[in-house]
Design a protein around this nucleic acid. Structure first.
Lengths: 228, 228
DNA sequence: CAAATGCTTCGGCGAACGCCGAATTAAGCC
DNA sequence: GGCTTAATTCGGCGTTCGCCGAAGCATTTG
């Protein structure tokens, strides 16, 4: 059947360690060059080139050439969503299995603490953020959907977020965190929230990974506004 | 890094045509025996046995032995969600590519018309259902979340659905249909809706695939209640 | 107890694919 | 025009992995 073949094809593309590493590196929405991607994947440029070509023709990546640099990014949020979902199912599977010792290096630690999830915040920071917003009644989260409350709308506006006209009452897609196994806030609200935190210099991107670090200003800001 | 390896591992499991076919066959939430799965995948039982063992130890499937029959089912809704999301990203990728001729056999046609998506309805029927419910103001859908309205709660109760106590206002997770590229209703509401339609004998499972057929009673019922 | 059925394990075959070295093209820089 | 760097293409090597035939366990049936 047609659909099954497409499923296997796409999954097989993600199923290679080298390609998976490159896709993960692109999870924060930035565009990286072929050489950078080769490095994070731990393979030679010529090997990476082949992988990138396949990912691009499959429509998982989009490329954009500028001079002699070829920039690659995820073709759509759908791809990022797919990757997070695979990690989620994977984590759910591991949880059921006998606990294999998971070696958590410092890199992993930073990722678990705070990272970007395509365009919004995840990790412990994302979870704490979602909890604090929930406790204060600014958003209502469940496994299945999320909603911004009236007081939440006011709060976000005062925080500098333009959520647009009111009609779409539901802005936030809850997103199950694969390291914390708890909900954090994605969707449009999550993206705008993350962007605002970057703009306020509360958090800063890590140059090497999707991990983000909370700045001193951020420590203060998060404590003052949400007590987290 | 740990997380990347897990991503590749899980994706590689889905990336084999045989395993993908078996997973797709389990997408409607039923449990199938090893022999049945071997048949749908077009491989011999001993090959299927190996695949099923790997999928089970990875936590994607759960098995449950009854006499000499070994029943397999998806380990969790997270796995079903992952599969749908991969198809979605795959479809999005294909849409960007030059239109390759997609051969749509009668099997595909039935699938596109109406099918189950783990526990709720998808395909053209699912989309029409979502549209009708939206037009009547029973649910509010967006790409990011969905909500049941007050009048919707009444309607669903009158339709025979027990949605439980009111607190969780948001019941329905919109689910992007990979064949229609439009939203349909998943989540708890979607599952209960589908179950009710089966109970009313409005729709019937196809023995060979996830496709469902609308019965004459269903034709009448859908027209009378929602004019679809 | 013997036969049949469903499932699994083992062993070897073959194809697919990831990998890199070497060579080629293209863009910037002196 | 040379030199460096980025990216790609090509060719061949090696491993991995899916596949099936044959055999081995369990469970049900006569």
């Amino acid at each position: 059947m047609f659909t099954t073949a497409a499923l296997a094809e796409t999954a097989a593309l993600v199923g290679d360690p080298g390609r998976a590493a490159m896709l993960m590196a692109l999870m924060d929405g930035r565009a990286l060059t072929a050489a950078e991607l080769a490095r994070v994947a731990g393979i030679t440029p010529q090997t990476a080139s082949g992988h990138l070509a396949r990912l691009t023709t499959a429509g998982l990546l989009s490329r954009h050439c500028q001079g002699r640099h070829h920039y690659h990014r995820l073709a759509s949020p759908a791809v990022a969503h797919m990757l997070e979902t695979i990690m989620e199912a994977s984590a759910a599977g591991q949880a059921l299995r006998p606990q294999r010792a998971v070696v958590t290096g410092p890199r992993d630690k930073a990722m678990r603490a705070a990272r970007t999830c395509y365009d919004h915040l995840a990790g412990q920071l994302g979870v704490r953020l979602a909890e604090a917003l929930g406790e204060r009644g600014y958003v209502e989260l469940s496994d299945e959907g999320g909603a911004v409350t009236e007081t939440g709308m006011e709060f976000f506006r005062s925080f500098g977020l333009d959520l647009g006209p009111a009609p779409a009452r539901v802005y936030c897609r809850p997103c199950l965190d694969w390291s914390e196994r708890r909900l954090h806030i994605g969707g449009t609200l999550g993206a705008k929230l993350a962007a605002r935190c970057f703009a306020l210099n509360w958090i800063r991107r890590n140059s090497e990974s999707r991990a983000v670090t909370v700045t001193p200003a951020g420590q203060r800001g998060f404590r003052e506004t949400l007590d987290i």
